[in-house]
Computed example of a mutant assay.
Amino acid sequence: MADPNESQQQHAQISEAANLNQRNGQASTRKKMSRSDHDDIRERIYNLMQEFNAKGFVFGIISENGKPITGASMNLCSWWKLDVHFEKNAREVIIKYVNKNKSNTILDTARRINDTFTDATLSIFLSTMMKRCEPSSGMYPLASGVSPPWWPTGDEEWWSQLGVAEKDCPPPYKKPHDLKKPMKVGVMMSIIKHMSPDIGKIQHFIEHSQRLQDKMTNKEKQSLFEILEQEKALSVANNGNSFESSFEDHHVVATPQDVNSRKRPYFNI
């Protein structure tokens, strides 16, 4: 008769092996996608070099997930790698810039929302997104008087930078249609920050909400898209783990001969 414990161990080993294979497959897919991105950048660099008869080039990109992609021609490679240290210094520089301009950014965003969006659009946006937050507003009935954890309390670090009058702080937990416009702006900011950096989720809900599509103007849609992208960039910049990468894994090198020939610059991958 088979030992139950032995069977369980075998099942666990098989399951672990399957999970390992799945993780390896996902890593391989990500690596292939990364190489594809590198090839695209390589082709664009080559075209620019040909067009302008370039003698040398350097570039540094912080990708959407925060990883640096850098490159240099052979005659500038040593300076770019040893003196500039873009791949090591870019994260710190970006974070300093974000922190220095954070107050102005939040205030400008709040003003942009207030000036661009109508009161009705804000109400529909909040009604739509409140149901999609985690936990959903449906778990916190208005009659209970208890607000969900993502509802602004007025104690958030960014709240004081909104310029909301004290009498409107914090916004009471009510239906969006019953809130004053400055309060709606604050709640909208809170929801966006709650879902950040998964901005794609907000965009998905907006695109699939017929009420929002019918109500929002093109100007409002464009403005919201830019606000979401800005918030995502701020979130990535403040997330130190998003910048883990190595210089060698994402570096383009081109020799002087590449500039004057049909040979493409190559990646050190």
Rank of each mutant, 00 (worst) to 15 (best):
E6A: 09
V146Q: 08
I191V: 07
E207R: 14
E229F: 10
E244R: 10
N241E: 15
S73F: 00
E157F: 14
H250D: 13
F86E: 08
Q22H: 10
N114W: 09
S209A: 05
Q9T: 07
E64L: 06
E220G: 12
P197M: 01
E166T: 09
D37E: 12
R112G: 05
I45Q: 01
D249C: 02
K31P: 03
L48I: 06
E51T: 14
R35P: 02
S73G: 05
Y46D: 02
D214Q: 14
S242R: 05
A120R: 10
K96G: 08
D258M: 03
S7V: 15
G154F: 00
P170K: 05
D214P: 07
Y266V: 09
V58I: 10
H251P: 04
L142Q: 14
Q222W: 11
M188P: 00
M139C: 13
H251I: 10
N75P: 01
F86K: 06
I202F: 08
S78C: 02
E64C: 01
D115W: 07
Q230T: 15
I69S: 00
F205C: 10
I227Q: 02
T109Y: 00
K102F: 13
G200N: 02
F225K: 15
T128M: 12
T116E: 08
K131V: 13
F225P: 04
T128P: 11
K184D: 03
S246F: 00
E244K: 12
S160V: 13
H250Q: 12
A72S: 06
N21T: 11
D119W: 08
I206S: 09
V98A: 12
I69V: 09
L48K: 07
Q213P: 04
F267V: 12
H11L: 15
K131P: 08
G60A: 01
S127E: 14
G138C: 09
K232C: 05
I269L: 13
G60E: 01
L107W: 12
H208G: 08
Y97Q: 12
K181G: 01
S123K: 07
I227K: 03
W159A: 14
N65G: 05
W79Q: 01
T121W: 03
D249Y: 03
F243Q: 02
I113G: 04
V187L: 02
R35V: 03
K221E: 14
A120D: 12
R42C: 03
T128W: 11
N241K: 15
K174A: 12
I199N: 05
E248C: 07
T153P: 00
L126R: 06
S137L: 05
V236T: 01
S34D: 03
N104G: 13
R30M: 07
Y266I: 10
F57H: 03
V58C: 04
A2C: 09
E16N: 07
F205I: 13
S144P: 02
M130I: 15
N99D: 11
I95E: 10
V164S: 02
N99G: 09
P68Q: 01
P4K: 06
E156F: 04
N89F: 09
S136W: 00
P172T: 11
A12F: 11
A237H: 02
I69P: 03
N104Y: 15
E64D: 07
A233K: 04
L48G: 07
M129I: 14
G163A: 05
F225S: 15
T109S: 06
E6M: 07
